[in-house]
């Protein structure tokens, strides 16, 4: 089996699906000639031509608006927003049009658009190249939100997203685009949406994370293991719809939960998960659910490493639930 990084796995998924399904098209800033600012679409224009891999102007609302129109008429567009931070000019198109079309048309117009966009900090990108806006899209009815954590996941999840009929925000963890490497099957396979995965089994604390924070969570869990603390680690994979059963089953076993997210604390997705766990597993909880998040400030350029959760903070949060 070939070894790939996340970029290569995304590229492989796009190439496979474009060969399989002529309705799949790509559009975005620098996706064609340049192959994408992170090279995720590298070489695709050579194989599929400029009618299927389109360079657009710097106009995010236009990119998503055009993708919506294509989807309504039967194509399966995969637009790229160069950084998740740039998604805000397209926010109205996503929330008010894309998320609502199927519902507003009484099911006549599904809008199968998969928006790929790199998110998150850790690359010294500053305020405008580091944000994790997943909570905003999870909050919006009509959208699915998917975040892969390694190359195998990236390929299998992306193929599932392109083959289903609802709009998806596919958030790619850019900090580990190249750092995360692993074996990826050649050819076709899919990972079902809405299913979490237990990455490591354990007995004392359930640790829930997604995307690049999964690796941060594992760092903390390794440190905890050295102290004899056994943690179960869950990679959520699909954030909307999220897999309540896998989380609740685990917490019923461990009695404790820690959620690790990179986004700011207030009104983040960790709040949703913790409220869900508290509601569904209250009688099994030995301590309040803890959330470890980014701080409630704009993403800082110089204090990036202080801002982002790290292994030590994961460890101390795990200890906090045990000491409660």
């Amino acid at each position: 089996m070939p070894t790939m990084n996340i970029i290569q796995a995304v590229n492989d998924a796009l190439r496979l699906e474009m060969r399989r399904d002529p309705r799949v098209v790509i559009l975005g800033e620098d996706v064609a000639k340049f192959g994408g600012v992170f090279r995720a679409t590298s070489g695709l224009v050579d194989e599929f031509g400029p009618d299927r891999v389109m360079d657009t102007p710097l106009a995010e609302a236009g990119i998503i608006g055009a993708a919506i129109g294509m989807a309504l008429y039967g194509l399966r567009p995969v637009p790229e927003i160069q950084f998740a931070d740039f998604i805000f000019p397209a926010f109205d198109q996503i929330v008010n049009e894309l998320a609502k079309f199927r519902y507003r048309s009484g099911g006549q117009y599904p809008a199968p658009v998969v928006i790929r966009t790199p998110y998150g900090g850790g690359i010294r990108g500053g305020h405008y190249h580091s944000q994790s806006p997943e909570a905003l899209f999870i909050h919006t009815p009509g959208l699915k939100v998917v975040v892969p954590s390694d190359p195998y996941e990236a390929k299998g999840l992306l193929l599932s997203c392109i083959r289903q009929n609802d709009p998806v925000l596919f958030l790619e963890p850019k900090r580990i685009y190249r750092a995360s490497k692993g074996e990826v099957p050649e050819g076709d396979y899919t990972i079902p949406l809405g299913k979490a995965r237990v990455v490591r089994e354990g007995t004392q604390v359930t640790v829930i994370a997604w995307g690049s924070m999964l690796h941060t969570a594992l760092e903390g869990v390794d440190k905890a293991a050295e102290l004899g603390i056994s943690c179960e680690v869950i990679d959520l994979r699909t954030l909307m719809p999220f897999d309540v059963e896998t989380m609740v089953e685990s917490v019923k076993k461990t009695g404790r939960a820690v959620i690790v997210q990179e986004a700011p604390r207030t009104c983040g997705f960790a709040a949703e998960l913790s409220a869900t766990i508290s509601e569904r597993a209250m009688a099994w909880l030995e301590a309040p659910v803890e959330r470890l998040c980014g701080f409630d400030t704009p993403f800082p350029y110089t204090l990036e490493h202080e801002y982002m959760p790290n292994g030590d903070r994961v460890l101390s949060t795990i200890q906090k639930t045990l000491d409660w």
């Binding site: 999870i138 997705f269 949703e272 913790s274 409220a275």
Partner: peptide, 21 residues
């Protein structure tokens, strides 16, 4: 009146279960 998922209401629910368990 907000939508339910990842809403401010659940953020309050989190903070209360944390502070008033």
């Amino acid at each position: 009146e907000s939508w339910p998922v990842a809403s401010f209401g659940v953020d309050i629910a989190y903070r209360v279960q944390r502070a008033c368990m």
